[in-house]
Amino acid sequence: MTDNMYIERSCRISENTIWLDGAPYWKGLPAASFIDFAKEAFRLLKVDYPKFYKMDNLSKLVFLAADFLLQQQDKDGIALVMANRSSSLDTDIKHQQSIQEKESFFPSPATFVYTLPNICEGELCIRHQLMTENIFLVDECFPTETIEMYAAYLLRSGKAKRVMCGWAELFQENYDAVLYLVGPNGEKEHTKKNIEDLFR
């Protein structure tokens, strides 16, 4: 089923560490909160993109993983197929707090817009100018087969040139992003086992 499709590159961010293709690339301060870690990692990228600071934490996480993953990459026709466990619950709770009490009922549009998990994909599309296929799924753990099949469909049908797949989970201080590029070049075949290896 997966002939001529390869996992070309991967990036993982969890526990204050960034990994590229399975090797540690950069480590933040061990005790740093996610928000401090994200700021530090963002500075490392040396990009001028003030919108980063306006994003919610899930979008920040995915933005960072994608930026490291796509360094020096051709971005033409990259579709997005992502999933997570907590949807946008981290931001949902913030919006809920702003409407919980009648006396302090001030819902914020800048918070509310992030109460949808696919917004993080929208941010990536804007950042990398990806006018491409997008889907966001929610599951208790990474739905390996579904993501594999969906990505393979997009490539085989010609609806995408490459696909950025992955897990984009963030809830409070627990986060884990595993993004990988599937395309026609590389050595690591796009198989269930090789995908599962990215999560080890």
Binding site: K39, P50, Y53, K54, A110
Partner: peptide, 8 residues
């Protein structure tokens, strides 16, 4: 600056 997260 605070509510619009104008970091820099």
């Amino acid at each position: 600056i605070e509510v619009l997260n104008l970091e820099d």
